[in-house]
Design a protein around this nucleic acid. Structure first.
Lengths: 163, 163
DNA sequence: ATAATATAGGACTCCTTTGGTCGGAGATTT
DNA sequence: AAATCTCCGACCAAAGGAGTCCTATATTAT
């Protein structure tokens, strides 16, 4: 359904989290996972892949953790998504190996390819830093109802249950 | 993986096919399926959904078939994709019911929502009619190698085996 | 040195989705 | 009435994704 995986979701959440506390050093996988109620093992796997792709840097051992390897403004959403989900392809034909039964008769592959490039471009214009700022002008209709969420995770929360 | 389903692929192929022969009347599901080597029953299901969404009109009975209910230039790629795959949502949280465990703690939902709108806009600028025209200027590097494909299905093919 | 904690990473299981199939009913033309 | 085609629900199998488990390794605190 043209939907990105939950791992990519977790990756974006973690990247935003790390961007917000970039000056406070690194954060551990457990810390982030507990805060967002994400399975620790799963988030760890996601973070490890981000390290492999060079978006994060890790520090092992006690008091270790992850931190951004680049300024948040230099990491695009496309970087994060493609690091987790691989190069985004609109069609099955678009992958390197063409295991699509309609490969030879497909008549819409090239046009879709162009559209894919536009989508990637759209994702590449938004950086992790953009995730940390508020929406420029919220819709004045229900601005109060469903406004910001989890905007400053480091204000009043340290360890309130949920263990 | 941010990939659209094969049904959506089939839908686009069929829409292009019907757009190309719009003046020749309607085409049956079997006819299109055989041409692109798509399982007939599956394509029929796809076409039926396009009828429901008002993108196609059907004519039952002998010599029945499908034809575009609107000019091809008035049907966007977004229309076709959303008719098949439903409203495209980037995240699990974006659906109407929030069955995502991180719904309350998710911090990237609103930014992703904005990006989704941009993707939909990109898909909405391309119409079915655009699928029928050649790429404006092919890349001059390998233009001859992998050029057009299945451009005029009605030239030399009528019923060559494959039955 | 040892214990504790953190990352690293593979293997594995469940579950949802999707691609595809089957069968029957209704409509229309011949 | 027969043939053909759309319509539509139910059904099945394969694939991918989400999540768990286990172990190895590195670093720090005691």
């Amino acid at each position: 359904m043209l939907r990105l995986s939950k791992k990519a979701d977790y990756a974006l959440m973690a990247m935003k989290h790390l961007a917000l506390q970039a000056d406070r050093g690194s954060a551990s996988a457990r810390e982030i996972a507990q805060y967002y109620e994400i399975p620790v093992e799963l988030l760890a796997k996601v973070l490890q892949r981000l390290v492999r792709r060079g978006l994060l840097a890790s520090h092992q051992g006690t008091r270790g953790g992850y931190h951004l390897s680049r300024p948040a403004s230099a990491i695009t959403i496309a970087d994060v998504i493609q690091a987790i989900d691989g190069p985004l392809t609109m069609t099955a034909c678009s992958t390197d190996d063409h295991r699509c039964d309609q490969f030879s008769s497909c008549s819409v592959r090239d046009p879709l390819w162009r559209i894919k490039d536009r989508i990637v471009a759209a994702l590449a214009t938004c950086t992790v830093a953009d995730l940390t700022v508020d929406p420029p002008e919220a819709t004045p209709v229900t601005a109060g109802a469903l406004g910001k969420r989890g905007q400053s995770p480091f204000s009043s929360v340290s360890s309130e249950g949920k263990g």
